[in-house]
Design a protein around this nucleic acid. Sequence first.
DNA 1: CCAAAGTTGGAATTGACATTCCAATCACGC
DNA 2: GCGTGATTGGAATGTCAATTCCAACTTTGG
Lengths: 211, 211
Amino acid sequence: MSAPVKAAEPKRQRLTQAGRRTRERIIETAAELMFHRGVAGTSIPDIQAAAEVSASQIYHYFGDKQGLVLAVIDHQTDAKLAQQRPLLDSLDSIEALREWCDRAADRQDAAGCEGGCEIGSLASELADSDESARTGLAGAFDRWEEPIRSGLARMQARGELKESADTAALATALLAAIQGGMLLSQVRRSTTAYRQAVSTVIDHIESHLVR
Amino acid sequence: MSAPVKAAEPKRQRLTQAGRRTRERIIETAAELMFHRGVAGTSIPDIQAAAEVSASQIYHYFGDKQGLVLAVIDHQTDAKLAQQRPLLDSLDSIEALREWCDRAADRQDAAGCEGGCEIGSLASELADSDESARTGLAGAFDRWEEPIRSGLARMQARGELKESADTAALATALLAAIQGGMLLSQVRRSTTAYRQAVSTVIDHIESHLVR
DNA sequence: CCAAAGTTGGAATTGACATTCCAATCACGC
DNA sequence: GCGTGATTGGAATGTCAATTCCAACTTTGG
């Protein structure tokens, strides 16, 4: 029959300087709006108005709304990793882990606990309704989890963490605590739950320290 | 100015037998659809068709879509607590905690990891866009967390858990692990993350056992 | 049995929204 | 300098959603 399902793919086109800038502006604006109002709550006209572009521009660069959503997923993933980057690459001590998680908590407090995790919110909304989005978000979580696992693995390699510790599982548990904690904090409008959840998992990691 | 914001409130009316049944059917159908497709992805006509009711019936009983959503939140909360009820009231041993969490994991596996937590999904979608929904969901999480906390407190009272253990924080951490683990499992289509997250937190609770 | 209130059907209204189209500019390699 | 393809504007299209309205029918309490 037809070729294997793939997302409406805007043909690989050469982008002009202006094109690249427009494209970026659309993605950033869409990401912002979708973060605050959800994907379904963000209409193309909304994005048009906020980014000051015409409908044709959005459809020219992304094909359709789904294409834009996929671009937003990648953008938010890159943005999150970049934002946490210096710390993210040295999560190889209990102190570094705590510091890294605290930063996020402080940011969340500063935002008045409105909005949860950029990735997590997209995941919850899209996981069951858009298979390619689900795949993209699974990749996002993998990219995010990797530096955690890697940091723990370094601790273990250095002999600071017991051999019996399952670093992969601990990394997953910490990521889950972050996600669940963020959600509870968003709903309760207080970072207490996030801090407790994350702190609990890090305490547990600490209990695997040698000595 | 005006009275404090309150949701469009269908006047307290006496319900006939038929009325009560229709109302219930609408709520259950809406809950089901909204769980699978999200609130925004579920239209009133969708609900009409699935529940075999007319538009007037929905608006008669709930005022508007938001009213229906609030009813769905309460319904899902009651349903979740009822479903877990026997176990939920005796979460006062490590084994009971593990058993309780395992059940949820098995259910999730049986569902092919489609759909996350009924409460968590609603929370993520509605927390920032509907203040009364947010309040209702905060209450839902509180009602859910309470039996966990209470079970841990009993363990502590019996002297099984060290005095130094913060049972409230541990309960919150477990709930967060459940939520975050569910989200990761939904996105990854595997309960591994959920099992690891939950297991990690329970291991940590276990480390607070006396002796 | 009668009236008030509860229940239901279904059409009509109004407004968005995603997407398409066409035509006009504009940038750049040759 | 020219032409091809990139970029943009803005109107038009078709669909579908939320909600309202009104009229008919049913139940219930007195």
